Simulated scan of single mutants.
Amino acid sequence: MEQTQAIDALAALAQSTRLEIFRLLVRIGPDGLNAGEIAERLGVGASTLSHHLATLDRARLLRSWRVQRQIFYATDYGGTRRLLSFLMEDCCQGRPELCGDGLGTLACVTKQKEPTDEAPAPACGC
């Protein structure tokens, strides 16, 4: 991940509603929620929600897909891992295992290839 992409992702999360959306979708998992359910759970209006979802999507922190007339959203775990890896890649002078709490495992994904249609990223590294 380049520094400008990390800045975009961090800026997207630096707003309370977007952070709530992101954390909700992390808890929900890879199946995600439709936009209406996100709005209902967080008490956010549809137009406001749409703006926030678009911002998170552009920052590569969410992924979306359509099922008939509904749009579903879920955490983009690959993008999220790339952000966390970027933040932690120089942890403990190149010895990320010293960071503890599972942060050392983030360094392992720093060098992973970008997902493709043939080899998508795993849904969650948890």
Score class of each variant (00 low, 15 high):
2 E>S: 05
7 I>L: 04
7 I>G: 02
7 I>A: 02
8 D>W: 06
9 A>I: 04
12 A>P: 08
15 Q>R: 14
19 L>C: 15
19 L>W: 14
23 R>H: 15
29 G>H: 05
31 D>R: 14
31 D>Q: 09
35 A>I: 08
36 G>Y: 05
36 G>C: 07
40 E>F: 15
43 G>H: 06
46 A>V: 03
49 L>M: 12
58 R>D: 00
58 R>C: 04
58 R>N: 03
60 R>W: 11
63 R>T: 00
65 W>I: 02
65 W>Y: 07
68 Q>P: 07
68 Q>E: 03
71 I>N: 11
74 A>R: 10
76 D>A: 14
76 D>E: 08
77 Y>I: 03
78 G>A: 04
80 T>R: 08
83 L>A: 04
83 L>N: 02
83 L>P: 07
83 L>E: 00
85 S>P: 08
87 L>Y: 11
90 D>S: 15
92 C>Q: 03
94 G>R: 08
95 R>V: 00
97 E>A: 08
97 E>M: 05
97 E>N: 05
100 G>V: 00
101 D>H: 14
101 D>S: 14
103 L>W: 10
103 L>M: 12
107 A>I: 00
110 T>R: 12
111 K>C: 07
114 E>R: 15
115 P>S: 06
119 A>D: 00
124 C>K: 09
124 C>E: 01
125 G>M: 09
